[in-house]
Structures are given as structure tokens and as C-alpha cells.
């Protein structure tokens, strides 16, 4: 359960920026594609980008918190990619 909390804390930080930029991008491209599909596609690509900017560049020290609870960088990256793809697909299927 503690691992799930750790993954949630890590991912939580990426949701708002990814979602806001995805909505903005999709709104700008409504003429070219469906609004929700646009959000879904943008979200799938933007979350890993925010992961990189937030954790690899801005706060690399935060990784030590997650390492200490047994979460490696590989697990954290996999978590970001899998959850973002699922949320992105959900938007696309609505």
C-alpha cells in the first residue's frame, strides 16, 4: 500500500500541468481534430515531458524519497508512461 501511495505522490505532481496544457493545445486545434481526442493525444506526450522537466531537471533530489521507499527510476518512468497512456486513451474513447 505504501508503494501505491508513493507512486500516487510522484504522479500527482504531473497531472495539473499536463492536463492544463493538453486542454489548451486541444482547444487551439479544435478545427483540426476532436477536442477530447486532442486532449488524450496531448496528455500521452506531455506527461512524460513534465516528468522529465520536473524530476530530472528541476528536482532530481526528490528521487531519493522514492528510492527510499523502494521505487527505482525505472518503476517511476514506467508508472508515468502506463498511467498517462491509460488516461490519454480514456479521453480518446469518451
Amino acid at each position: 500500500m505504501r508503494t501505491v501511495y508513493g507512486l500516487w505522490f510522484f504522479y500527482k505532481k504531473l497531472i495539473i500541468p499536463s492536463l492544463v496544457v493538453s486542454i489548451a493545445l486541444s482547444y487551439l486545434m479544435t478545427a483540426a481534430s476532436n477536442f477530447l481526442i486532442g486532449i488524450g493525444i496531448s496528455y500521452i506526450f506531455l506527461t512524460p515531458t513534465f516528468h522529465y522537466l520536473t524530476y530530472e531537471l528541476k528536482n532530481p533530489n526528490e528521487y531519493y524519497f522514492y528510492y527510499n521507499i523502494g521505487l527505482s527510476k525505472f518503476i517511476l518512468w514506467t508508472n508515468t508512461l502506463v498511467i498517462s497512456t491509460m488516461i490519454g486513451l480514456l479521453f480518446m474513447l469518451i
Binding site: 508513493g6 505522490f9 510522484f10 500527482k12 528536482n59 533530489n61 526528490e62 524519497f65 521507499i69
Partner: peptide, 15 residues
């Protein structure tokens, strides 16, 4: 190294 956006109580319970 603690995540800034999390409540201390939650951090303790997670750690």
C-alpha cells in the same frame, strides 16, 4: 529530498 507538494502526515505514513 522530500516532495514539496505532499502533506507531512501523508509522507510519514508512506515512508
Amino acid at each position: 529530498f522530500l516532495p514539496n507538494h505532499v502533506k507531512i502526515k501523508n509522507i510519514i505514513q508512506c515512508f
